Structures are given as C-alpha cells and as structure tokens.
Simulated assay, not measured.
Amino acid sequence: MPDDVKLGEAPLHAWPKDPKTSVVRNGSRLNEILLIRLDAGEMDEETRSRSADGIAAYSAICTHAGCSVTGWLKSEVGDKDVLKCFCHNSEFNPRESAQVVFGPAPRRLAALPLAIADGSLTIAAAFVGKVGAQQAG
C-alpha cells in the first residue's frame, strides 16, 4: 500500500480494515479516508507526527455539511494543491493538518494517525478530531 500512494498525486480513497478479522470497514461512508503522500519538508510538525513515510490520512467527510471531499486541485487562495469539497467549495490544506483554507467548513478534517508495521501501512490511533459535519441539535 505505501508504494501505491505517489508523491504529489491525488489522494487514494480507502477504508480501514480490521487487522484481526480482515473485515473492511466500509459499511458507513464515515469510515472513508483519504491517503496522500506529501513532501515531509512541507508538512507542519503536527502532520508529520501523524504521518508514516510521508503518507497522511484524513477523513473524506467534509466538516461543513458532511459531503464527500473528492477534489485535489490548486487552492483558491494559494499555489499548492489542496483537498476540496465541491458541495460548498471548502478547501483543506493536508500539509497543515487539513486546516480550512477556503470556504464555509468550520473546522479541519479529522486526521487518522498512521504507522508502518512489517512493511504495511497501519492505523496507529483513533481519528484526531470529529469525523463529519456538526449534527443539528
């Protein structure tokens, strides 16, 4: 898996798999993650600490309205590629913990800490941050 994620290319969409049962957790769209390989020199310390071999993982669910984050393109406000939700044009910088750089999203995407174990990309801990949009209360 680590070699499938190429530096500078669009993120891969993936679903976590239970290491004991090998059951893929794709029953809910809230489990979808984005895997992206970044230049470690461009990552902030927080992103670097949660990445493995330059690969970072984020929830694919936008924090604004819960739409899917599917875009990888130049930012409206900079010259770097960003993760984009086309529903309402929110953009997230994966190099800086998926912080919001444009649009109505109220907070960054949830991050999934990664590690490499026996040559395989693994999940090191639970999501950092809340997955998805705020629910009406």
Rank of each mutant, 00 (worst) to 15 (best):
M1C: 13
D3G: 10
D4P: 02
V5A: 02
V5R: 00
V5N: 00
V5S: 00
L7R: 10
G8E: 07
E9N: 11
E9G: 06
E9P: 03
A10H: 04
A10F: 06
P16E: 04
D18N: 15
P19V: 09
P19E: 10
S22F: 12
V24I: 15
V24E: 13
N26D: 13
N26G: 08
S28N: 10
R29L: 15
N31E: 11
I33V: 14
L34Y: 03
I36R: 02
A40H: 07
G41Q: 11
G41S: 12
M43V: 02
M43D: 00
D44Q: 07
E45K: 13
E45V: 11
E45P: 02
T47Y: 03
S49C: 01
S49L: 04
R50F: 11
A52T: 02
A52S: 06
D53A: 12
G54P: 01
G54K: 03
I55H: 00
I55R: 00
A56D: 01
A56G: 04
Y58V: 01
Y58P: 00
A60M: 02
A60P: 00
A60I: 01
A60S: 07
I61M: 09
T63Q: 09
H64E: 06
H64L: 07
A65C: 11
G66N: 05
C67K: 03
S68T: 15
V69Q: 03
T70Q: 12
L73S: 13
K74R: 14
S75K: 10
V77A: 08
G78W: 08
G78C: 09
K80V: 10
L83M: 11
K84V: 15
K84S: 13
C85A: 11
F86R: 10
C87L: 07
S90L: 09
S90K: 05
E91D: 05
E91K: 03
F92H: 01
F92T: 00
F92L: 04
F92R: 00
N93W: 10
N93G: 08
P94H: 06
R95D: 04
S97P: 02
A98T: 02
V100K: 07
A105T: 06
P106K: 02
R107N: 11
P113Q: 08
P113E: 08
I116P: 00
A117I: 14
G119H: 04
S120A: 15
S120Q: 14
I123D: 05
A125Y: 09
A126F: 14
K130Q: 15
A133E: 13
A133T: 09
Q134L: 14
Q134R: 13
Q135N: 11
